[in-house]
Amino acid sequence: MIEFKRISYQNVQVGEELVSNDLVVKPEDIDTFAYAVDDHHPWYFEQSPFGGPIAHPTLLANQALLMRHNKYIVDAGLHAQMQFEFIEPVRAGMRVRTRGKIIDKYERRGRHYMVTAFETTEEDSGQVLMRGQFTQMIFPD
C-alpha cells in the first residue's frame, strides 16, 4: 500500500523510481487526443506505412508526466523542459507502461525543480516505444 506524501523539494529524492499504471491504448484514446490537439492525420485513423493505424507520437507523454502522482499528492506543477526520442510507433491495443527515475533536483531563482528520465514500453513484448527526460517545477504550498 502506498502512503501518499505531499510533493516537496525535501520529499523527492534523486535516484527515486517512479512507475505509471498500465494502460491499454484504445481507439477512443487516439480519437480524444486527436480532438484535443486538433491533429487528424489519416495515419492515426486509417492505414499508415507501418501497417494499420498508429497513434500520435506524443500520445503517451502524460503517462510519463503523471508518474509522480502515483506516489505524491501534487496540487500543481509547471512543466519546464521536455525531451523525447521516438523509437517505435504506438498502436491501439498495446498495453503500455512508463518507468522513470528522478535523476536530479535543483533550485534556481528561488524555485525548485525535479528532473525525471523515463522509458515507455509495450509490456507484452518488452519493446521500448519512447524514452526521454523532463523537468518539472515543484510548486510551493
Binding site: W43, S48, F50, I54, P57, L78, H79, A80, Q81, M82, Q83, F84, E85, F86, I87, E88, P89
Partner: peptide, 12 residues
C-alpha cells in the same frame, strides 16, 4: 522518419 527515429527537446 519522425514516427520512428524522431527526437524533440523543448523548453516551456
Amino acid at each position: 522518419g519522425f514516427i520512428r527515429g524522431g527526437r524533440m527537446s523543448v523548453k516551456f
